[in-house]
Write a protein that binds this DNA or RNA. Structure first.
Lengths: 344, 344
DNA sequence: ATCTCAATTGTGAACGCTAACAGCCCCCAG
DNA sequence: CTGGGGGCTGTTAGCGTTCACAATTGAGAT
């Protein structure tokens, strides 16, 4: 591949010459060093502007060993949740003066994650945030070069020694389940997410524990994937069972599939069956009927994770604490839940 | 903000010493220069592996003036479309040996876009892909440093002199509208997207032209935003009008809102009113009823745009052609469309 | 008038890599 | 036996920035 060589632009030396100072003074102006006479400063700034000077960050990175770039390891970033976290991180990073580079992984195999870390490390990122719902990722992260700061966002709670920002999935599941129990439902069925994803697992566990604490029967689960098709499959089985009056879904997309299955079976929501989702996607309020759901603030999650990363980067290296920030979920009440129908 | 200085790692010189060669030979191995004796090559590779050597790309960038990084200017990247394009671009970029950095803009003001370009340029990206639905972006792109290659993806068709990859929105709108006309509907109403977005505008124009060509009445439009709430608003007005039997929506989210409005008004879909969407989001097949929609292959759009960018970068600079790649849409038939009800 | 200290500016040397050129060795032709 | 050429390797000089230190200046203290 014959690549063209970009032409050389204006550099510090050029600015220095025009302003009648040394290159070092230009550097000082650029880095806001205090000891520069205001008058000199202005002259330099003027020269920079007239030459349209732009500092070469590669050279700067070479000597400072800091690139002002952060790496993000993403998975399934087309989904609303990950995409929102990405956005939250990027916004916060920009305000902190960082650019973010993204490395998505196809699957969550250890090798894939390691190669993503490697790619980011080669490009000299200062830190890595992994949008990393499976534990393979966090454990791979620990193999990262020791001079690289990492945090994980949105995965499970049991992550070993990588700082983590995450939602309290179990608590969210509890909120949803308890809400349905409080309405008078004898028990709550569960349309689960993929069992090997910690987030799905935690939601299932939160649901199970809540039922158990209430002395309710714990129905079996048949987890599949995160999408509406999976919800439709699970929902069909539940719709066929007249004992089912309340369903807690692992996310809103699954809930959409469940709603469709119930509709096809002729079971009215919420009159006959109540449904609760998880995520509060932007359009969940426009499902038929509008979905009661557990709200996750993905943007906040992203922002928090960046804050945690920066905090770690600026902390003296002997402080070996591992933080885990947990963001609480809230329940959004809409029209898809109601008391159970009277027994006939 | 007191930042720690990362410790220094192993460099080429270390590898060279261990392998008993000069650093230049190490460099040759790394760059796959042909004239290295296989035996030497192996020794060097072995040394690199045992020292866990990782090439410093900042230094490489400094001398080659190529960072192997691409910049992406994104807008509303939490939405399914942009997020998918981003993913498509990133996948393709990885295969081509590039890392992508992302700069999102809050709004599409010229100043915002320029500052994003500037941020990317400072970080020495080799090229920029703008996910850029509004013309302000492409025109701002032309102000970019001349040594920076830019392409825009997914915006309008009338972009001036920036290479573009885009969907044929008018054609998609035509497909949808014609499908409804062919079913026997006297005319087709339109729940529009924001009129100041070229994509929305093109869809509206495609719809309008198709109706005009068929000699059908062109109903008024009241465009708002891309979300379900907007669809709900527009849908309520249409649901109240018994003459409305077919609705073409500017995207699937709007369609979701329209479906809800129709449902609340007691108008059955598709028996009384047919609805067509645009985008084919992953779960559109699980709406009530499953949505007939125009499918956009966002991933393909992303891949194509990367290919176009690379092609431009590797082209001799005297070739001043501007390419416009147009990806055709397809119509996905589902359950939300049917012939109009018999007049009563 | 001399000294001291701080503020301001300049000088040279890295940072880790690639490009350009020079040198070595060995084989084959003259 | 000598000369030339190609394969392979080493040497040197940047790339554009920051860092460490030296140099210069001027104000206030002695």
């Amino acid at each position: 591949m014959p690549l063209q060589k970009a032409p050389r632009g204006t550099v510090m030396r050029d600015v220095a010459k025009l302003a009648g100072v040394s290159h070092q003074t230009v550097s000082r102006v650029l880095n806001e060093h205090p000891n520069v006479r205001p008058e000199t400063r202005l002259r330099v700034l003027e020269a920079m502007r007239s030459l349209n000077y732009r500092r070469n960050l590669a050279a700067r990175t070479l000597v400072t060993r800091r690139s002002n770039t952060l790496g993000i390891i993403g998975f399934e970033t087309t989904l609303f949740g990950p995409a929102s976290m990405l956005y939250g991180i990027e916004s916060a990073a920009r305000e902190a003066g960082y650019l973010v580079s993204i490395a998505t992984v196809r699957n969550l195999e250890r090798a894939d994650v390691l190669s993503a870390v490697d790619r980011l490390a080669q490009h000299a990122v200062d830190g890595i945030i992994a949008i990393a719902p499976k534990t393979a990722v966090t454990s791979a992260l620990m193999q990262a070069p020791t001079d690289l700061f990492c945090v994980a966002v949105g995965g499970a709670g049991d992550s070993e020694s990588v700082p983590t920002v995450r939602m309290d999935n179990a608590e969210g599941a509890c909120l949803a389940t308890q809400h349905l129990l409080d309405l008078g439902h004898a028990t709550v069925h569960h349309a689960a997410g993929p069992g090997d994803w910690p987030e799905a697992h935690e939601r299932t566990e939160g649901w199970r524990r809540t039922l158990y604490a209430a002395g309710a029967v714990v129905p079996p689960v048949h987890p599949q994937w995160w999408d509406a098709a999976s919800g439709y499959e699970q929902g069909r089985a539940m719709a066929a069972d007249p004992a089912v009056t309340a369903i807690f879904c692992a996310n809103d997309r699954i809930a959409l599939g469940v709603l469709r299955a119930l509709h096809e079976a002729g079971r009215k929501v919420p009159e006959e069956v109540s449904v609760v989702g998880f995520d509060d996607m932007p359009d969940s309020g426009f499902f038929l009927p509008p979905l009661t759901t557990v709200s996750q603030n993905f943007g906040e999650l992203g922002r928090r994770s960046l804050a945690l990363l920066l905090e770690h980067m600026n902390r003296p290296s002997d402080a070996e604490t591992v933080d885990h920030v947990i963001v609480p979920p809230t329940l959004v009440h809409r029209a898809s839940t109601a008391p159970p129908p009277p027994p006939r």
